[in-house]
């Protein structure tokens, strides 16, 4: 059974229905599928013609120099780009077979299933408990007992429980950067999402905190699909299963930089035998 694609906006797609592709997508469910995806901010095209499949239970890394649209692509997965008034999408982006940008789709529902962790830790100015319990609370869970369990489980999963279990009512802004970021991860997990999107989660942290979060990611892979944007190639090499490499094309006339997906493959392949020369240049540090 092929995954049902709902072609939207009059785009005709050719779906690869060869036995090999069918088998491949059956073996592991495709969580996100982007076909010919372009994201615009007004007239400016931030990223163009992205074709990518994010598979369940994997960590997919989006790497590349700055300004290539990696974050833009990531944020389109949970419709965070909606917060920017001039943003719009062309092409197709499906989540488990459903067109994410279908007019009937409610972004709030989307974001309850697809959680996000941001570059700079952004704890709410509330207690640690209230931070982590925020998601379940708006999902309608009111009972203290249930909330306690969820908070404990999420903080445990995020490898933070032992450190904060005695001060859950303390302000979340009083923790160190690494702790804050782990709390943000716990907060995202508490809503029981399907997918975790991470936008450069370690770039504001020191190496030790980074290492802890990378360990965490590998742990979390068991239960969540994770997509991570990172500047740090070595990090991508360490944690991810698949890697997508983006670069920027400069339009000669307008001098605008538009991101483009160069290569998307298993991490081991991308880092040892990259197919594209640009990928190889980036990996070996010749630019970017």
């Amino acid at each position: 059974m092929t995954s049902t694609d709902v072609p939207a906006k009059g785009v005709t797609l050719s779906i690869d229905e060869s036995p090999a592709a069918t088998a491949a997508s059956q073996a592991q469910d495709v969580v996100f599928r982007a076909r010919d995806l372009s994201v615009f901010y007004g007239d400016f095209r931030a990223v163009r013609n992205v074709d990518i499949d994010i598979r369940q239970g994997e960590i997919t890394a989006l790497i590349g120099p700055s300004g290539c649209g990696k974050s833009t692509v990531l944020r389109s997965f949970n419709r965070m780009n909606d917060l920017i008034p001039t943003a719009r999408l062309e092409g197709l982006l499906t989540y488990r077979g459903v067109d994410l940008y279908h007019p009937k789709v409610d972004p709030v529902e989307v974001r309850r299933r697809i959680g996000m962790v941001f570059q700079k830790p952004n704890p709410f100015p509330k207690s640690i408990f209230d931070n982590v319990a925020y998601g379940p609370r708006i999902a309608g869970i009111k009972k203290k007992g249930e909330l306690n369990e969820i908070v404990e489980a999420s903080l445990t999963r995020a490898a933070l429980w032992e450190e904060v279990k005695d001060r859950l009512s303390a302000s979340a802004t009083g923790m160190s950067g690494g702790q804050q970021q782990r709390m943000c991860i716990a907060r995202a997990i508490a809503s029981n999402p399907d997918v975790l999107l991470m936008d450069e989660p370690c770039s504001a942290l020191d190496p030790i905190a980074t290492a802890r979060i990378e360990e965490l990611m590998i742990e979390l892979k068991k239960d969540y699909t994770i997509v991570i944007v990172t500047h740090n190639m070595q990090q991508a090499a360490r944690v991810s299963d698949r890697t997508a490499f983006f670069t920027a094309e400069v339009d000669a006339k307008t001098e605008q930089r538009t991101g483009v997906l160069v290569e998307f493959d298993l991490t081991t392949t991308v880092f040892s035998t990259p197919a594209d020369e640009r990928t190889e240049n980036y990996i070996t540090g010749r630019f970017g």
């Binding site: 709902v6 969580v31 989540y95 077979g97 459903v98 994410l100 279908h102 009937k104 789709v105 299933r113």
Partner: peptide, 11 residues
Amino acid sequence: PPSLSVEALAG
């Protein structure tokens, strides 16, 4: 994961 439809994501 459950199989999804547009309605499920409609809220």
